[in-house]
């Protein structure tokens, strides 16, 4: 099924998402990959606030290439999600509702997704030029020293993704 959804997702939209759905996402999402996840974990351990409101949010596992003058962002496809598995259940328990990446997730992530009613999407790996066209604004909001791994606030319009794991834990990957 094809559907067009806005972030934050409504509870009934989340409930009806099914593995295999082709979804076009519009709204505000945040990028974070390995190093940013590690810092967020350390931030939480110190009892401090995360750099963006995690409740209801969507994270895109992305480290873009640099933008040319006049471009919003460079190439912007997904990285392998499994490397973030160690940090993800905690973020899900804090209200993270959507993740965009590629590849399989751990049993712990799946359990935390079911527990919290979250959804995991795949963006097409290696289609960063195409995907960059759906990003209309990009701003670094934290960890600028990490370069490509900094946390960016993105505005996306009709970003094409596929539900690979739905809130019931059904998975499209074999």
């Amino acid at each position: 099924m094809e559907r067009y959804l806005k972030v934050p997702f409504q509870p009934e939209e989340l409930k009806t998402m099914k593995a295999g759905d082709f979804v076009y996402i519009t709204g505000t999402i945040y990028t974070a990959r390995d190093a940013a996840h590690k810092r967020m974990e350390e931030t939480l351990q110190r009892g401090e606030e995360l750099p963006f409101p995690i409740d209801g949010s969507v994270i895109y596992y992305l480290g873009p290439s640099p933008a040319r003058e006049g471009q919003v962002i460079g190439s912007a496809g997904p990285t392998t999600s499994g490397r973030m598995d160690k940090y993800t259940p905690r973020l899900l328990d804090l209200g993270l509702k959507g993740m965009i990446g590629k590849g399989k997730r751990s049993a712990e992530v799946r359990d935390a997704m079911i527990r919290n009613g979250a959804v995991y999407f795949a963006a097409i790996g290696g289609a960063g030029a195409l995907l960059s066209k759906c990003i209309t604004a990009s701003e670094i909001i934290a960890y600028e020293d990490l370069g490509t791994e900094a946390i960016r606030k993105l505005t996306v319009k009709d970003l094409p993704v596929i539900v690979v794991m739905d809130p019931e834990g059904n998975c499209l990957y074999k």
Partner: peptide
């Protein structure tokens, strides 16, 4: 989409993949 991606990369000079 991958075909389209290659076209966009060449035309707009955006790397084929961000990695």
């Amino acid at each position: 989409k991958l075909q389209e991606n290659l076209e966009i990369a060449a035309k707009d000079l955006i790397p084929i993949c961000q990695d």
